[in-house]
Design a protein around this nucleic acid. Structure first.
Length: 391
DNA sequence: AAGAAAATAT
DNA sequence: AATATTTTCT
């Protein structure tokens, strides 16, 4: 059947951990035969044929499988002995998807007995031959959305696993499942906030620096022990003082992922693999509002230019070697990303290592301008490249 | 029961 | 190697 049954109970807590996972939109739902036909067992066994695991598997009872269908995963509680498959509630909101693709994949399997090799200390892991881990919950975007919804509804501070569990109202999910997801969620959130704070902080320093620079005009500037101009006790702008090099990993490679629909807010976009950072920040933001932490340098700076749909700031420093001190690229919902983007490395090398390049965070899911655009703009503004030797 | 940390699995 | 998810420990 579509639903796979997990058959052991959590002795300690009495939580039900056996449940079925039903796939929405799966054809021939009640016809095992057809379903089986459509399962690719090669995939099913990928990764578990390393010999030491296989022998312990028993198809019927030990094999845990989770079927993941593109859009939704639902959980149904199982009676301990019942074999019945419960079809799931419909996907509430985001339905209306004619899912033509059936099973996208079978992700999970295997209850492993991971003991055997260990001089066990009777840790629950080195348990009986039946060592079955609980089935992994597949936190699909849909599921996560509900999670986030619940969390936000409760309020970030009041959102504790048990309440979230209630609100989500998805059978089969345990408090533990949620607790762990919550942990990660908070963690991501924390990082994000930290990043934003840091960016903001540097933004402020930048402002102060610029103001001070404006005041002293071309006056002489004292050099710190760093040999660089300092202002108001802030560290000199120097490559080594990059506040934070936040060039989202997912932006670094992948030559040209399908450009997100220009005007749509990427957070709402459909198929975020778990890797998509926007996954963790699904809460819809006010359209057109700048993402908090977005490089919002003093907009008024004369050198602040828009081009190619992205904001691009170049802030020259008063002194020759520091001619070009900071470049900021950013996008906002109203300024869609460009088609392509350069790697951080390519920009670094193009601009020259002598320059401080604190890349401030881009709104998640958006891309910085292409390297060519940057180059062009640099030229247009008559900003000379500075050889590293000058630094 | 909540959280953090450690352990596993992918 | 890095992540995602589970398990253990406080």
């Amino acid at each position: 059947m579509l639903a796979v049954r997990i058959c052991n109970k959590d002795e300690e807590q009495g939580e039900v951990d056996s449940f079925s996972i039903a796939a929405e939109g799966f054809p021939d739902f009640d016809d095992d035969t057809h379903l089986l036909d459509s399962i690719n067992f090669d995939d099913l066994f990928v990764g578990i044929n390393d010999g030491d695991v296989l022998p312990d598997l028993e198809m019927d009872h030990e094999l845990l499988a989770q079927f993941s269908v593109n859009n939704s995963v639902s959980f149904e509680q199982f009676d301990d002995n019942s074999k019945s498959v419960n079809k799931d509630e419909g996907e509430e909101e985001g339905k209306a998807h004619g899912d033509q693709e059936i099973v996208s994949k079978i992700e999970e399997l295997a209850a492993k007995s991971k003991n055997g090799d260990k001089i066990n200390k009777s840790s629950p892991q080195s348990k009986n031959s039946q060592g079955k881990r609980k089935v992994k919950v597949d936190w699909t975007p849909e599921l996560h959305r509900r999670f986030v919804q619940a969390v936000e509804q409760l309020g970030v501070d009041k959102a504790v696993p048990s309440r979230i569990l209630e609100l989500m109202g998805i059978e089969g999910l345990t408090r533990h499942n949620i607790a762990s997801h919550l942990q990660k969620y908070r963690s991501h959130r924390k990082h994000l906030l930290a990043r934003e704070a840091e960016a903001a902080s540097w933004s402020q320093r930048r402002q102060m620096y610029d103001r001070a620079a404006a005041v002293n005009g071309g006056g002489k500037r004292e050099l710190s022990s760093w040999g660089a101009p300092t202002t108001m006790g802030f560290p000199p702008m120097h490559p080594h003082f990059r506040p934070l090099n936040v060039w989202p990993k997912y932006l670094q490679h992948s030559p040209s992922p399908p450009p997100p629909p220009a005007l749509s807010w990427p957070y709402a976009a459909a198929p975020p693999p778990t890797h998509d950072p926007s996954y963790w920040h699904h809460h819809q933001r006010v359209p057109n509002a700048l993402t908090p932490g977005t490089p919002c340098f003093p907009h008024s700076l004369p050198t602040n230019t828009r081009f190619g749909g992205a904001m691009f700031s170049v802030i020259p420093l008063p002194h020759p070697p520091y001619k070009l001190d900071l470049i900021t690229v950013g996008c906002s919902p109203s300024h869609p990303p460009l088609d392509s983007y350069p790697s951080k490395e390519s920009i670094d090398s193009a601009i020259g290592d002598a320059l401080a390049k604190p890349w401030l965070p881009l709104p998640l899911g958006l891309k910085p301008p292409s390297l060519d655009s940057v180059k062009v703009e640099l030229q247009r503004q008559g900003i000379p490249r500075i050889p590293p030797s000058c630094a």
